[in-house]
Design a protein around this nucleic acid. Structure first.
Lengths: 199, 199
DNA sequence: CCCCCGATGTATCGTCCCGATACATCGACC
DNA sequence: GGTCGATGTATCGGGACGATACATCGGGGG
């Protein structure tokens, strides 16, 4: 999941880990902001797999105890997506199976990069997600109906709020699907639109 | 977190791992249903810490070849909370610091066992949670305002939906808080009250 | 002028949790 | 008599997290 998101961001422009993290937090919805403990290992995996390349100025030379000051140490590492990485991203972006929508986080990443996704795949992912969430909702609903009597006020409220949330998600997805069906053509998988990356 | 939830459930009655899991899924809100890969290690930790005791009928005895039928093989393990475990649970239940509300899952567990929690602690946890979520909401809001122009329709929708969710959570919490303030006395931290589970 | 502080930045460690999987028993239905 | 689904215990590898350490840099105050 993290790999997917990282590749998607690097698709737009090379970045440091630090900025990657900020962008990730922004794109992924503010919540679930990704920690360094996940980020750097993920970058390491991607690098080992040859999907990103690193541009490291000076690779933290040993330095016994001689030169004390030595400004500019601790090389900032810039990560760039490779051709292989772009291939892999294209693969991931066209995944329309359960792995694309069963996990909410992964679905979020897919959605965040929908502009790189073909229209029919978009539709299938949205519908798959809706089915998944609908099942969740139904399960929750019947569980709530079954146990309504036995639960205390707080547990009940928790469940009610949870049910309300999934219910709203279903409606939200339905709106997205409708709008997608109404107007399928906009900004398909063309991507690669580098001109105005001014920020 | 899992430890907390397990202790809470075992407080009511001893249970197998299997049933523990089902109850957990039910109480925790249907979503986030806890896997065996978490459950059994957690039980092992609890057992090692002396917070639960196991009642294993026949610990998979060698059994030469004598008694063939021997119903109940593959010892079903019944877990029972110990006195120490109850102490620990009481401790956890009275935690009103950031650890009780910064993590949504942990907050959910706290809420699920609010009937074992003193009224003032309940209020403090609810208010803490609200502040946390409000901060999240404000961050999301300003981030959205800042980047509204640069984002595509899908990312925008994702953020809008996310913002809507946290916003609703804040309102939900506010209602709980109001109701708690209006009527603080019901079912305080007395717990251990098997007769009138009428709530 | 210097020092400290907060933002930027890289990296690891231990721990928790998850999905997948294997194994085992039981009752029920066909 | 056979298989299927529910009940049940358990482990494995891996992903993600929080905490933490370390390092650089700009700017503002003593």
């Amino acid at each position: 999941m993290l790999e997917f998101a990282i590749l998607g961001l690097l698709q737009q422009s090379p970045m440091h880990g630090y900025e990657l993290r900020k962008q990730l937090a922004e794109v992924l919805g503010g919540l679930r902001s990704i920690s360094y403990g996940s980020l750097y290992p993920a970058l390491k995996r991607l690098h080992a797999a040859g999907l990103v390349s690193t541009d490291e100025p000076d690779r933290r030379a040993p330095l016994p105890a001689d030169a004390p000051p030595l400004t500019g140490r601790r090389g900032k590492v810039v990560y760039t997506i490779t051709a292989e990485g772009k291939e892999r991203f294209a693969e991931l972006v066209s995944q329309a199976g359960p792995e694309a929508y069963d996990d909410g986080r992964l679905f979020g990443v897919h959605l965040a990069f929908f502009r790189h996704t073909a229209a029919d795949v978009r539709l299938r992912i949205l519908e798959g997600r809706r089915r998944t969430v609908e099942r969740q909702r139904d399960g929750l609903r019947s569980s709530l109906a079954r146990t309504r009597e036995r639960l205390d006020r707080y547990t009940l409220e928790l469940q009610r709020h949870g049910l309300d949330s999934v219910d709203r998600e279903v409606r939200w997805l339905s709106e997205l699907i409708d709008s997608e069906r109404r107007d399928p053509g906009e900004q398909t998988g063309g991507d690669a639109e580098p001109p105005s990356r001014t920020d």
